[in-house]
Design a protein around this nucleic acid. Structure first.
Lengths: 336, 336
DNA sequence: TTGAAAGCGATACCAA
DNA sequence: TTGGTATCGCTTTCAA
């Protein structure tokens, strides 16, 4: 019942009375072994509780059978969902998954490079490391997929729609009669935020509307609360927030200031957190798991691609959906 | 600028005009090398963009420099936060992190065993694999820490308080005058739920209160909604839910049935999701990151522990905190 | 069908 | 201080 030190292939070979080559074959279901031999080896392996050493296999095979994913953190459901989708897809393809959260790291670039040495492919999300780090790793020949991040030459990228969705959101707000619109969020903080802002700007450009930008100091609830005074000072009909957390912060602060949504002020977010549903927040839903899953599948393709006929870098934008709730203006019917 | 195939230590050695042993020493800052030799090697390594092969190192050193964590999924902030705490602590200790989500797997046990072969230590959360799998892996000599899960002989365990907190929650509800209390959640679905139920039961035993158990069919929002009719049929003053999601589901369903919390019905949850704050849900807050971080630190200790003087299995229960909001009964002041 | 042996790319011991 | 080399545990030709 105890097997404190792991058995090696040599011990199995000896116990089964065969060579290590045969053990290797038998255990990997090569059809070059007699059923009886295979059985003998199986029994020996079982008795010794033998599990092949992963490093040894990787060294011999020249592959890790593992993929990595790099994200800023796991605060909020966004990244967690992406990671989950990635893990599930990778698992289905036979790969283990290594994770790396860059927030709070001393040297994210170094951490990512070290991770790169442990995997056959790497997914890198926005707001983690600079493009040159990505380029450096990709030039190694290691397959890389960028997630929710501006494309880099020669590297695959998967994103969710921002610009078009922002446009749709803008049109909905205009339909409510809102004309003084304030965007809360720092476009320079992430490509996603930048896309949302520029989409909004574009949609409003040709209309009789006025757009104000308030950057705020982060992307969380507190940042939303903190920025609220400045937002309210811009006297908006509607506040389009870069994400749900900020929107919820604004909602909280507005309420404290005696303002109600949507009667006094329309507010929208982005991400469709569970909390958004309870706050009645109009927001945008994204296919986060699909985002992660796509990355894992693309990586797998790249890994098993003959290096000779390497295809060009791929780009994909996954569709998002505006979720209308009560915070954006008075509706006859509210979707819960 | 391109280095499509990775350089090996041999190439560096050749370029620097030294032996591979010297390269190894120079790059690992051994003080057995002349500063000038070190510099020559450094330069060569840089020129070739050399990174030591991880499998080769692991094979030679006999360690992976990686830890694993096993959880059911990453839905909701609970597991995500635990994983984040784990990753951060592991990183600080120089370990990479492999993750494994068991939900949706064909053969979780096999997946966990395979993971075990890739790591120096493993954290296993509740509701993932059976005790015998854990025992089997631990008997290998691989350090294992159990998280939010009933202890297994000889294996370290870290949990958050359930029983005592449930008692505190019960007393608060009694203080509100609630006497007919229904618990929603299946105690057999997880040790946490079991602890919460038994704590509640114990606290209510000696009081003039009546406790009903409604198991429900899961732990998510929909399960809460679905179970609501049965819950309401038990005509409770208060519903103590196994977690926030179920509680939010009950809240939603109750509202649809024309009941309001807390006037008509008190509802409490567990986990303190962001959504709980916006739903005004009384709940319980747990130190989730600390849970994960503790596991990572304990594993590190075990890994660097002389096998000879192995200490006994450790147990720890981290304190939790009841968060009073408006859903549990009328208060003079509401904590937001 | 099986076995012997050559890698895979590092680490670390033993000499020099 | 440096180099030569055994070793880690497996996969995979190449012969037999």
């Amino acid at each position: 019942m105890k097997a404190l030190s792991k058995a090696t292939i040599y011990q199995v070979a000896q116990l089964a009375g065969v060579s290590i080559a045969t053990v290797s074959r038998a255990l990997r279901d090569s059809d070059l072994v007699t059923p009886e031999t295979r059985e003998r080896v199986r029994a020996a392996a079982e008795e010794l509780r033998f599990t092949p050493s992963r490093p040894a296999r990787s060294l011999a095979e020249g592959r890790h059978a593992a993929n990595g994913i790099v994200f800023p953190d796991l605060v909020g459901p966004y990244y967690a969902e992406v990671v989950l989708g990635y893990e599930a897809a990778a698992a289905a393809l036979g790969s283990s998954v290594l994770i790396l959260a860059t927030n709070g790291r001393r040297d994210p670039a170094a951490a990512v490079r070290e991770l790169a040495g442990r995997v056959d492919g790497l997914a890198v999300m926005g707001r983690t490391v600079d493009d040159d780090v990505v380029t450096g790793i990709a030039s190694t020949g290691l397959p890389v997929v960028l997630l929710a991040r501006d494309p880099v030459d020669g590297v695959d990228t998967v994103r969710t729609g921002n610009t078009n969705t922002a446009r749709a959101l803008a049109e909905h707000l205009l339909g409510h009669g809102h004309r003084a619109i304030t965007f809360l969020g720092d476009p320079s903080s992430s490509p996603d935020v930048a896309g949302r802002f520029s989409g909004l700007k574009a949609a409003l450009a040709s209309k009789q509307a006025h757009l104000t930008l308030v950057r705020g100091t982060g992307l969380d609830l507190d940042a939303g609360c903190a920025a609220a005074p400045e937002v309210l000072a811009s006297a908006p009909d509607a506040v389009v927030c870069a994400n749900d957390e900020m929107a919820l912060g604004v909602l909280l602060a507005a309420e404290e200031a005696g303002l109600r949504a949507p009667q006094d002020l329309a507010v929208t977010g982005w991400d469709d957190l569970l909390a958004a549903r309870f706050a009645g927040l109009t927001t945008v839903r994204q296919p986060m798991r699909e985002l992660g899953a796509t990355a894992a599948r693309w990586l797998d393709k790249r890994i098993n691609e003959p290096p000779s006929q390497r295809t060009a870098a791929r780009r994909r934008i996954l569709a998002t959906e505006v979720v209308i709730r009560r915070s954006c203006g008075m509706h006859e019917e509210v979707h819960p």
